[in-house]
Computed example of a mutant assay.
Amino acid sequence: MGSVVLRTGQRMPLVGLGTWQAAPEEVERAVEAALEAGYRLFDTAFNYNNEEAIGNTLKRWIEAGKVEREDLFIVTKLPHIGNRASDVPKYLDKSLKRLQLSYIDLYLVHMPFGFIPDATGDVPAINADGSFVLDLKTDHNAVWKAMEEQVDAGKTKAIGISNFNISQMERLIVNSRIHPANLQVEMHAYLQQKELRIFCETNGIVVTAYSPLGSPGAKQHWQKKYNYSPENFPDLLGHPAVQQIADAHDRTPAQILLRHLVQQHIVVIPKSTSPERIKQNFKIFDFELTPEEMEILNNLDHGEQGRILDFGFFKGVENHPEYPFKGTKKDTHNAVNNVFSSEEKQVAKPLNALCVQNV
Protein backbone atom coordinates (compact mmCIF):
# COMPACT_ATOMS: atom_id res chain seq x y z
CA MET A 1 0.00 0.00 0.00
CA GLY A 2 1.39 3.41 -0.95
CA SER A 3 1.92 6.25 1.46
CA VAL A 4 3.19 9.82 1.70
CA VAL A 5 5.36 11.31 4.42
CA LEU A 6 4.06 14.24 6.46
CA ARG A 7 6.35 16.98 7.76
CA THR A 8 6.11 15.21 11.15
CA GLY A 9 7.74 12.10 9.69
CA GLN A 10 4.49 10.12 9.87
CA ARG A 11 3.57 7.93 6.94
CA MET A 12 0.02 8.64 5.78
CA PRO A 13 -1.58 5.98 3.56
CA LEU A 14 -2.55 7.18 0.10
CA VAL A 15 -5.97 5.51 0.25
CA GLY A 16 -8.34 5.74 3.17
CA LEU A 17 -12.02 5.29 3.91
CA GLY A 18 -14.14 8.42 3.92
CA THR A 19 -17.16 8.31 6.22
CA TRP A 20 -19.09 11.52 5.48
CA GLN A 21 -22.82 10.81 4.98
CA ALA A 22 -22.43 7.36 6.56
CA ALA A 23 -24.90 6.56 9.35
CA PRO A 24 -23.46 4.89 12.49
CA GLU A 25 -24.88 1.43 11.74
CA GLU A 26 -23.53 1.62 8.17
CA VAL A 27 -20.13 2.92 9.16
CA GLU A 28 -19.42 0.09 11.61
CA ARG A 29 -19.88 -2.44 8.81
CA ALA A 30 -17.93 -0.26 6.38
CA VAL A 31 -14.94 0.11 8.72
CA GLU A 32 -14.99 -3.64 9.35
CA ALA A 33 -14.93 -4.34 5.61
CA ALA A 34 -12.21 -1.75 5.06
CA LEU A 35 -9.96 -3.19 7.77
CA GLU A 36 -10.37 -6.63 6.25
CA ALA A 37 -9.47 -5.21 2.83
CA GLY A 38 -6.26 -3.67 4.20
CA TYR A 39 -7.24 -0.05 4.84
CA ARG A 40 -5.44 1.64 7.69
CA LEU A 41 -6.44 5.29 7.07
CA PHE A 42 -9.89 6.31 8.34
CA ASP A 43 -11.29 9.81 7.99
CA THR A 44 -14.13 11.13 10.11
CA ALA A 45 -15.22 14.35 11.84
CA PHE A 46 -17.14 15.51 14.88
CA ASN A 47 -19.80 16.81 12.47
CA TYR A 48 -20.32 13.38 10.87
CA ASN A 49 -21.86 11.99 14.07
CA ASN A 50 -20.30 8.57 13.50
CA GLU A 51 -17.09 8.71 15.55
CA GLU A 52 -18.52 6.36 18.20
CA ALA A 53 -19.38 3.71 15.62
CA ILE A 54 -15.88 3.93 14.11
CA GLY A 55 -14.37 3.73 17.59
CA ASN A 56 -16.36 0.60 18.39
CA THR A 57 -14.97 -1.23 15.38
CA LEU A 58 -11.40 -0.04 15.92
CA LYS A 59 -11.54 -1.09 19.56
CA ARG A 60 -12.71 -4.60 18.63
CA TRP A 61 -9.86 -5.04 16.18
CA ILE A 62 -7.21 -3.64 18.52
CA GLU A 63 -8.36 -5.70 21.53
CA ALA A 64 -8.52 -8.84 19.40
CA GLY A 65 -4.93 -8.25 18.30
CA LYS A 66 -5.97 -8.03 14.64
CA VAL A 67 -4.36 -4.61 14.24
CA GLU A 68 -1.94 -2.49 16.25
CA ARG A 69 -2.95 1.06 17.12
CA GLU A 70 0.36 2.27 15.69
CA ASP A 71 -0.56 0.82 12.30
CA LEU A 72 -3.75 2.90 12.07
CA PHE A 73 -3.94 6.47 10.81
CA ILE A 74 -7.03 8.19 12.20
CA VAL A 75 -8.16 11.64 11.05
CA THR A 76 -10.90 13.69 12.66
CA LYS A 77 -11.77 17.36 12.70
CA LEU A 78 -12.56 20.37 14.88
CA PRO A 79 -16.18 21.30 14.06
CA HIS A 80 -17.33 24.64 12.68
CA ILE A 81 -19.10 25.23 16.03
CA GLY A 82 -15.74 24.94 17.79
CA ASN A 83 -13.69 27.50 15.87
CA ARG A 84 -12.62 29.30 19.02
CA ALA A 85 -9.33 28.76 20.84
CA SER A 86 -11.09 27.87 24.09
CA ASP A 87 -13.15 25.17 22.36
CA VAL A 88 -10.33 23.29 20.64
CA PRO A 89 -9.38 21.02 23.59
CA LYS A 90 -13.05 20.46 24.47
CA TYR A 91 -14.02 19.16 21.05
CA LEU A 92 -10.84 17.15 20.60
CA ASP A 93 -11.49 15.46 23.95
CA LYS A 94 -15.03 14.66 22.83
CA SER A 95 -13.70 13.08 19.64
CA LEU A 96 -11.09 11.07 21.53
CA LYS A 97 -13.77 9.76 23.87
CA ARG A 98 -16.08 8.82 21.02
CA LEU A 99 -13.28 7.12 19.07
CA GLN A 100 -12.00 5.42 22.26
CA LEU A 101 -8.46 6.49 21.44
CA SER A 102 -5.72 8.19 23.46
CA TYR A 103 -4.47 10.24 20.48
CA ILE A 104 -5.40 11.24 16.94
CA ASP A 105 -2.91 10.87 14.10
CA LEU A 106 -4.10 14.02 12.32
CA TYR A 107 -6.49 16.66 13.64
CA LEU A 108 -7.88 19.17 11.15
CA VAL A 109 -9.71 22.48 11.46
CA HIS A 110 -12.76 21.38 9.48
CA MET A 111 -13.92 24.77 8.14
CA PRO A 112 -12.36 28.24 7.98
CA PHE A 113 -15.68 29.81 9.05
CA GLY A 114 -17.26 29.49 12.49
CA PHE A 115 -20.83 29.02 13.73
CA ILE A 116 -22.33 29.62 17.15
CA PRO A 117 -23.51 26.35 18.74
CA ASP A 118 -27.01 25.88 20.11
CA ALA A 119 -27.75 25.02 23.74
CA THR A 120 -26.61 21.40 23.30
CA GLY A 121 -23.15 22.50 22.15
CA ASP A 122 -23.18 19.84 19.44
CA VAL A 123 -24.94 21.52 16.49
CA PRO A 124 -25.12 25.07 15.09
CA ALA A 125 -27.76 27.53 16.26
CA ILE A 126 -30.26 28.52 13.58
CA ASN A 127 -31.92 31.89 13.05
CA ALA A 128 -35.68 32.27 12.57
CA ASP A 129 -35.23 32.50 8.80
CA GLY A 130 -33.34 29.19 8.70
CA SER A 131 -29.90 30.74 8.32
CA PHE A 132 -27.00 29.67 10.53
CA VAL A 133 -25.87 31.90 13.39
CA LEU A 134 -22.41 33.00 12.29
CA ASP A 135 -19.50 33.53 14.65
CA LEU A 136 -18.12 36.66 13.04
CA LYS A 137 -15.11 36.72 15.40
CA THR A 138 -13.48 33.60 13.99
CA ASP A 139 -9.72 34.02 14.54
CA HIS A 140 -7.61 31.46 12.68
CA ASN A 141 -4.36 32.35 14.42
CA ALA A 142 -5.87 31.95 17.89
CA VAL A 143 -7.48 28.64 16.92
CA TRP A 144 -4.21 27.42 15.43
CA LYS A 145 -2.23 28.20 18.57
CA ALA A 146 -4.73 26.04 20.47
CA MET A 147 -4.25 23.30 17.85
CA GLU A 148 -0.47 23.48 18.40
CA GLU A 149 -1.07 23.01 22.12
CA GLN A 150 -2.87 19.74 21.39
CA VAL A 151 0.28 18.45 19.69
CA ASP A 152 2.31 19.52 22.72
CA ALA A 153 -0.15 17.65 24.96
CA GLY A 154 0.19 14.45 22.91
CA LYS A 155 -3.49 14.40 21.95
CA THR A 156 -2.69 14.54 18.24
CA LYS A 157 0.48 13.78 16.31
CA ALA A 158 -0.15 16.21 13.48
CA ILE A 159 -2.46 19.12 12.71
CA GLY A 160 -3.85 20.52 9.49
CA ILE A 161 -6.73 22.31 7.87
CA SER A 162 -9.66 21.57 5.60
CA ASN A 163 -11.46 23.79 3.08
CA PHE A 164 -9.01 26.70 3.55
CA ASN A 165 -7.96 28.80 0.57
CA ILE A 166 -4.41 29.97 -0.22
CA SER A 167 -4.62 33.36 1.49
CA GLN A 168 -6.00 31.76 4.65
CA MET A 169 -3.16 29.22 4.66
CA GLU A 170 -0.57 31.94 4.08
CA ARG A 171 -1.76 33.75 7.22
CA LEU A 172 -1.50 30.55 9.23
CA ILE A 173 1.98 29.68 8.01
CA VAL A 174 3.37 33.14 8.76
CA ASN A 175 1.99 33.08 12.29
CA SER A 176 2.42 29.42 13.21
CA ARG A 177 4.99 27.57 15.27
CA ILE A 178 3.88 24.18 13.88
CA HIS A 179 3.00 24.47 10.20
CA PRO A 180 0.01 22.60 8.76
CA ALA A 181 0.89 19.06 7.76
CA ASN A 182 -2.15 18.41 5.61
CA LEU A 183 -4.87 20.19 3.66
CA GLN A 184 -8.09 18.31 2.95
CA VAL A 185 -10.22 19.77 0.15
CA GLU A 186 -12.70 18.77 -2.52
CA MET A 187 -10.67 17.41 -5.42
CA HIS A 188 -11.57 15.25 -8.39
CA ALA A 189 -11.24 15.22 -12.18
CA TYR A 190 -13.58 18.20 -12.59
CA LEU A 191 -11.97 20.28 -9.81
CA GLN A 192 -8.23 19.61 -9.77
CA GLN A 193 -7.14 22.71 -7.78
CA LYS A 194 -3.77 22.99 -9.50
CA GLU A 195 -2.78 26.36 -8.02
CA LEU A 196 -3.68 25.17 -4.53
CA ARG A 197 -1.68 21.97 -4.99
CA ILE A 198 1.40 23.88 -6.15
CA PHE A 199 1.14 26.13 -3.09
CA CYS A 200 0.92 23.09 -0.82
CA GLU A 201 3.86 21.36 -2.47
CA THR A 202 5.96 24.50 -2.09
CA ASN A 203 5.07 24.72 1.61
CA GLY A 204 5.43 21.04 2.50
CA ILE A 205 1.71 20.40 2.95
CA VAL A 206 0.33 17.01 1.87
CA VAL A 207 -3.03 17.23 0.08
CA THR A 208 -5.99 14.95 0.76
CA ALA A 209 -8.81 14.81 -1.79
CA TYR A 210 -12.30 14.38 -0.43
CA SER A 211 -15.11 13.56 -2.85
CA PRO A 212 -12.53 12.10 -5.29
CA LEU A 213 -15.37 10.36 -7.16
CA GLY A 214 -17.54 13.47 -7.28
CA SER A 215 -19.58 12.56 -4.20
CA PRO A 216 -22.43 10.81 -6.04
CA GLY A 217 -24.42 10.45 -2.80
CA ALA A 218 -24.16 14.11 -1.75
CA LYS A 219 -27.25 15.38 -3.55
CA GLN A 220 -29.55 12.98 -1.73
CA HIS A 221 -27.80 13.71 1.58
CA TRP A 222 -28.27 17.47 1.18
CA GLN A 223 -31.92 17.05 0.26
CA LYS A 224 -32.59 14.91 3.32
CA LYS A 225 -30.57 16.85 5.91
CA TYR A 226 -30.77 20.46 4.72
CA ASN A 227 -33.65 20.49 2.21
CA TYR A 228 -31.03 21.79 -0.22
CA SER A 229 -31.21 20.55 -3.77
CA PRO A 230 -28.74 21.74 -6.44
CA GLU A 231 -30.40 21.80 -9.84
CA ASN A 232 -27.66 19.95 -11.67
CA PHE A 233 -25.09 17.45 -10.50
CA PRO A 234 -22.15 16.20 -12.61
CA ASP A 235 -21.48 12.49 -13.13
CA LEU A 236 -17.75 11.76 -13.08
CA LEU A 237 -18.17 7.99 -13.03
CA GLY A 238 -20.26 8.11 -16.20
CA HIS A 239 -17.94 10.35 -18.22
CA PRO A 240 -17.08 8.63 -21.54
CA ALA A 241 -13.34 9.35 -21.23
CA VAL A 242 -13.23 7.80 -17.76
CA GLN A 243 -15.20 4.78 -18.93
CA GLN A 244 -12.94 4.33 -21.97
CA ILE A 245 -9.79 4.32 -19.81
CA ALA A 246 -11.47 1.94 -17.35
CA ASP A 247 -12.26 -0.47 -20.18
CA ALA A 248 -8.67 -0.32 -21.40
CA HIS A 249 -7.39 -1.43 -17.99
CA ASP A 250 -10.32 -3.74 -17.15
CA ARG A 251 -11.02 -1.56 -14.10
CA THR A 252 -13.96 0.34 -12.70
CA PRO A 253 -14.38 4.07 -13.44
CA ALA A 254 -13.90 4.68 -9.70
CA GLN A 255 -10.53 2.94 -9.75
CA ILE A 256 -9.43 5.13 -12.67
CA LEU A 257 -10.44 8.36 -10.93
CA LEU A 258 -8.69 7.32 -7.72
CA ARG A 259 -5.56 6.17 -9.53
CA HIS A 260 -5.39 9.51 -11.36
CA LEU A 261 -5.04 11.34 -8.02
CA VAL A 262 -2.88 8.78 -6.22
CA GLN A 263 -0.45 8.72 -9.12
CA GLN A 264 0.12 12.41 -8.35
CA HIS A 265 0.79 11.61 -4.66
CA ILE A 266 -2.58 12.96 -3.51
CA VAL A 267 -4.26 11.09 -0.65
CA VAL A 268 -7.80 9.95 -1.46
CA ILE A 269 -10.62 9.09 0.95
CA PRO A 270 -13.51 7.68 -1.11
CA LYS A 271 -16.64 7.01 0.90
CA SER A 272 -18.53 3.77 0.46
CA THR A 273 -20.60 1.42 2.61
CA SER A 274 -20.53 -1.38 0.02
CA PRO A 275 -17.96 -4.07 0.94
CA GLU A 276 -17.33 -4.84 -2.72
CA ARG A 277 -16.74 -1.21 -3.70
CA ILE A 278 -14.58 -0.69 -0.61
CA LYS A 279 -12.36 -3.55 -1.81
CA GLN A 280 -12.29 -2.23 -5.38
CA ASN A 281 -11.37 1.30 -4.31
CA PHE A 282 -8.34 -0.06 -2.47
CA LYS A 283 -7.03 -2.10 -5.43
CA ILE A 284 -5.35 0.70 -7.36
CA PHE A 285 -1.67 0.01 -6.72
CA ASP A 286 -1.22 -2.84 -9.20
CA PHE A 287 -1.65 -0.79 -12.37
CA GLU A 288 -0.54 2.57 -13.72
CA LEU A 289 -2.12 5.11 -16.04
CA THR A 290 -0.08 6.06 -19.11
CA PRO A 291 1.06 9.67 -19.63
CA GLU A 292 -1.55 9.97 -22.38
CA GLU A 293 -4.32 8.77 -20.06
CA MET A 294 -3.18 11.12 -17.33
CA GLU A 295 -3.31 13.97 -19.83
CA ILE A 296 -6.88 13.08 -20.85
CA LEU A 297 -7.99 13.09 -17.21
CA ASN A 298 -6.04 16.26 -16.42
CA ASN A 299 -7.91 17.95 -19.24
CA LEU A 300 -11.31 17.29 -17.61
CA ASP A 301 -10.55 20.06 -15.11
CA HIS A 302 -12.93 23.03 -15.17
CA GLY A 303 -11.61 25.01 -12.24
CA GLU A 304 -14.22 26.61 -9.99
CA GLN A 305 -16.98 25.61 -12.38
CA GLY A 306 -16.23 22.03 -11.38
CA ARG A 307 -16.85 22.63 -7.68
CA ILE A 308 -19.65 20.53 -6.20
CA LEU A 309 -19.37 21.55 -2.55
CA ASP A 310 -19.58 25.30 -1.91
CA PHE A 311 -21.37 24.90 1.48
CA GLY A 312 -24.49 26.55 0.10
CA PHE A 313 -26.52 24.15 2.25
CA PHE A 314 -25.36 26.23 5.26
CA LYS A 315 -27.82 29.05 4.63
CA GLY A 316 -26.12 32.43 4.94
CA VAL A 317 -22.56 31.05 5.16
CA GLU A 318 -21.37 33.30 2.30
CA ASN A 319 -21.80 36.25 4.69
CA HIS A 320 -19.06 34.97 7.00
CA PRO A 321 -15.81 36.99 6.67
CA GLU A 322 -13.83 33.73 6.37
CA TYR A 323 -16.06 32.09 3.75
CA PRO A 324 -13.31 30.57 1.55
CA PHE A 325 -14.86 31.06 -1.88
CA LYS A 326 -15.50 34.82 -1.86
CA GLY A 327 -15.08 36.15 -5.36
CA THR A 328 -15.37 32.67 -6.84
CA LYS A 329 -18.85 31.57 -5.78
CA LYS A 330 -21.17 31.32 -8.75
CA ASP A 331 -24.04 29.24 -10.01
CA THR A 332 -21.63 26.34 -10.06
CA HIS A 333 -24.09 23.55 -10.76
CA ASN A 334 -25.63 25.18 -13.83
CA ALA A 335 -22.17 26.06 -15.12
CA VAL A 336 -20.95 22.52 -14.54
CA ASN A 337 -23.92 21.03 -16.32
CA ASN A 338 -23.43 23.24 -19.39
CA VAL A 339 -19.68 22.66 -19.61
CA PHE A 340 -19.80 18.90 -19.20
CA SER A 341 -22.74 18.28 -21.50
CA SER A 342 -20.85 20.04 -24.29
CA GLU A 343 -17.71 17.96 -23.75
CA GLU A 344 -19.07 14.47 -23.23
CA LYS A 345 -17.69 13.19 -26.53
CA GLN A 346 -14.56 15.34 -26.83
CA VAL A 347 -11.03 14.00 -26.90
CA ALA A 348 -8.65 15.66 -24.46
CA LYS A 349 -6.45 18.49 -25.73
CA PRO A 350 -2.76 18.95 -24.87
CA LEU A 351 -2.08 20.48 -21.50
CA ASN A 352 0.13 23.47 -20.76
CA ALA A 353 3.07 23.24 -18.37
CA LEU A 354 1.02 24.24 -15.31
CA CYS A 355 -1.45 21.42 -15.81
CA VAL A 356 1.20 18.72 -15.63
CA GLN A 357 2.77 19.85 -12.35
CA ASN A 358 3.21 16.76 -10.21
CA VAL A 359 2.64 17.15 -6.48
Rank of each mutant, 00 (worst) to 15 (best):
T8Y: 01
T8A: 02
T19D: 00
T19I: 00
W20C: 05
Q21G: 05
Q21D: 11
V27E: 10
E36I: 08
A37M: 04
N50A: 09
N56I: 06
T57M: 15
L58K: 09
E63V: 00
G65L: 12
E70D: 09
F73T: 10
I74M: 02
V75D: 01
T76N: 03
T76E: 02
I81L: 10
N83C: 14
R84T: 07
R84K: 15
K94P: 04
S95W: 01
I104S: 00
L106S: 07
Y107G: 01
V109P: 08
P112L: 07
G114W: 10
G114R: 12
P117W: 15
D118A: 00
N127G: 12
T138H: 10
D139Y: 10
N141C: 13
A142E: 13
M147L: 12
A153G: 04
K155E: 03
I159T: 13
I161F: 11
F164P: 08
N165S: 08
I166E: 14
Q168L: 12
M169Y: 08
M169L: 14
E170D: 12
L172G: 10
V174H: 07
I178W: 07
H179Q: 07
A181S: 15
N182A: 03
L183P: 06
V185I: 15
M187Y: 05
A189G: 09
G204D: 07
T208A: 11
T208N: 07
A209S: 13
Y210C: 02
S215V: 07
S215F: 03
P216A: 12
K219E: 10
Q220R: 14
Q223R: 14
Y226T: 06
N227E: 11
S229M: 11
P230S: 02
D235T: 06
G238C: 05
P240R: 07
Q243R: 11
I245A: 05
A248F: 01
A248L: 05
H249F: 15
P253D: 04
A254N: 02
A254V: 00
I256P: 08
H260E: 14
L261I: 03
K271S: 00
S272H: 04
S274F: 02
Q280M: 04
D286Y: 05
F287Q: 10
L289N: 04
E292K: 14
E293H: 02
I296M: 08
I296K: 09
N298F: 08
D301P: 06
I308H: 13
I308L: 15
G312H: 09
E318G: 04
E318R: 15
N319P: 04
P321F: 06
E322H: 14
E322F: 05
E322T: 08
F325V: 03
G327A: 11
K329H: 10
N334P: 07
N337F: 09
N337R: 11
S342D: 12
K345Q: 06
V347E: 15
A348V: 02
P350F: 01
N352T: 12
N352Q: 13
V356I: 11
V356G: 00
N358G: 09
